[in-house]
Simulated assay, not measured.
Amino acid sequence: MSEMMQSVGPRISLSVFQFLGDQKQELVAFHRLATVYYSLHMYEMAEDCYLKTLSLCPPWLQSPKEALYYAKVYYRLGQLTFYQLKDAHDATEYFLLALAAAVLLGDEELQATIRNRLDSVCRSPLWHSSTSGCSSERARWLSGGGLAL
């Protein structure tokens, strides 16, 4: 990766802190930063930023829009963890959190999509060849740290 691309992340990270004080803007900034890290193939940084966005959400889901956001971000985390970070067990935990949000949302089509993905992950050779990684600890901390799905 070029030096210019490696310096993009820290510059964008610094710009996130100008939004401190407005939690919604901070959430948007971290979500955008996660997207940039993902596009730069910096998947662990993307995962951390996506988790940060979820920690900035209200502790209780207040609307279907919030449930949809949780479902989409946890689904993205599951995809990222399984395909890029090659961790089937942690991906499963993210997909289960996405499924919980989809159930609260009542979106049966989204639930079916997530269940199919879970089935694929659990049948994959990666599931049988790997053990649970460290991102599961962050997912447990996040889901146990006041976020109610």
Rank of each mutant, 00 (worst) to 15 (best):
2 S>K: 13
3 E>P: 02
4 M>L: 12
7 S>K: 14
14 L>Y: 02
19 F>I: 06
24 K>W: 08
30 F>S: 01
37 Y>E: 15
43 Y>I: 02
44 E>L: 15
44 E>T: 14
46 A>R: 00
47 E>N: 03
49 C>T: 10
51 L>E: 13
52 K>N: 07
53 T>L: 05
53 T>Y: 09
54 L>E: 07
54 L>P: 01
62 Q>F: 08
63 S>L: 05
69 Y>L: 12
69 Y>N: 02
71 A>E: 07
74 Y>S: 00
79 Q>G: 00
83 Y>E: 07
83 Y>W: 09
85 L>G: 00
85 L>W: 06
87 D>Q: 12
88 A>Y: 05
91 A>Q: 06
91 A>V: 04
93 E>L: 13
93 E>K: 12
95 F>I: 11
95 F>E: 04
101 A>G: 04
104 L>E: 12
107 D>F: 02
107 D>T: 01
108 E>K: 15
109 E>G: 06
109 E>A: 08
113 T>C: 06
113 T>R: 13
114 I>K: 02
114 I>S: 02
116 N>P: 07
116 N>S: 15
117 R>L: 10
120 S>N: 14
120 S>T: 07
121 V>W: 02
121 V>N: 07
123 R>C: 10
125 P>Q: 03
125 P>C: 04
127 W>F: 15
128 H>E: 14
130 S>Q: 07
131 T>G: 05
132 S>M: 11
132 S>E: 13
134 C>M: 10
137 E>S: 03
140 R>L: 15
141 W>H: 04
141 W>K: 10
144 G>S: 03
145 G>N: 08
148 A>K: 11
